[in-house]
Design a protein around this nucleic acid. Structure first.
Lengths: 196, 196
DNA sequence: CGGCTTTCTGATGGCACGTTCAGAAGTTTA
DNA sequence: TAAACTTCTGAACGTGCCATCAGAAAGCCG
């Protein structure tokens, strides 16, 4: 159902439900974020969710799409604006962590979904993230800024380090993201650069 | 119930059930690994599990304890055997990945449990892993082998990179662990060492 | 106002889960 | 062998889940 053909009310309800689903996922975790609880959060009847989304799967898909759009919108321009691959990699890491700072709950909700939907339609998301990152790495190797590491291994390491942060933040909400950002960019700058 | 006071039969059953639980967790995932399915795998009645373990929580705890023991037994001696902090860090990473190679299903089972038991008793495991790693990092900073990075941030990055591997292997079971091991040790060697 | 569609309610059904339990089967002890 | 204990079975129970649906409410329009 294309967005154009949706009523004003329908748009509003969908947005409200998605927001509540994000809150439920982030605060309760995937297991506890049931349709009934999400409905209770939104102060509506459980049936409404099925009415607007058809089922739980579609609601989850809508949440993922929404958060991914948010993330891409924030990160891609920042990365594209760089003129060297090294700067792009730094911007990649920084914008990832900046997104955590600005949209913590949506990100945690996204992580919850991805972690719990094994073999689900979101394992593809991970592969996409890796190949996107590899483009930056390839750029740097082409220009000679980066040394000759294995791109896939490096991508796994970088994404792994980034993806560890939200999980860590769930247990330690007050940890200083700034220090972490500085250190992560330094680590992978040192790890990727061509030795003098 | 201490291990000493257990019958031979009880020991055998517990071991069998733990093995089947590991297989179920690794192949089906946390959600699908129900008591009934584990019992079916072990070709016993569901009641037997409750009889020997008291409940699902205790079974999961037994699985975690078992795998952690396996891992510690393999990794700690290798790390302790090193004479420099840099070598210890390399051994840390290598033995982690070696454990994946030797005990893939137990490790995946462990990861499944830790990922799905948010706020559960296993979030503590993660903190323990970080502080243990920080001991190695602190060693290297004391001796001057390592530069002055923030230990917590570095620990998060290293563990994140390592923990990303099992998840990646679920989707890509045939990826070359050797190449990954070499690259990960190189990355964090470059990232930690004191610049000349 | 009266018909028509959209939107919502809240109860219901069906399903899978973990746990429990009366009794059966097996094992040990005397 | 007989009694006592351990181990096991499989059905039953209570719970929470998602999906469904008849009917109520609300909005829209002629």
């Amino acid at each position: 159902m294309p967005s154009e053909s949706r009523t004003f009310i329908e748009e509003a309800r969908r947005a409200q439900i998605i927001d509540c689903a994000i809150d439920a996922l982030a605060t309760l975790g995937y297991q506890q974020a049931s349709m009934t609880k999400i409905a209770k959060l939104a102060k509506i009847s459980p049936g409404v969710i099925s009415y607007h989304f058809g089922g739980k799967d579609e609601l989850i898909k809508a949440v993922v799409t929404h958060v991914v759009e948010l993330a891409v919108g924030l990160m891609v321009p920042r990365i594209m604006a760089q003129t060297t691959a090294a700067a792009a990699l730094t911007a990649y890491i920084e914008s990832n962590l900046e997104f955590m700072r600005l949209h913590r709950n949506p990100l945690i909700a996204l992580v919850e979904v991805i972690l719990h939907d094994r073999d689900g339609p979101y394992s593809g998301q991970q592969e996409t993230a890796l190949t996107d990152l590899e483009k930056v790495l390839d750029w740097g190797q082409q220009t000679g800024e980066f040394r000759d590491f294995d791109q896939r291994s490096m991508a796994i390491a970088i994404r792994g380090a980034i993806d560890a942060v939200p999980t860590y933040l769930i247990s330690n909400p007050d940890y200083d993201l700034g220090a972490l950002t500085t250190e992560l960019t330094t680590i992978f700058s040192l790890a990727t650069r061509r030795p003098a």
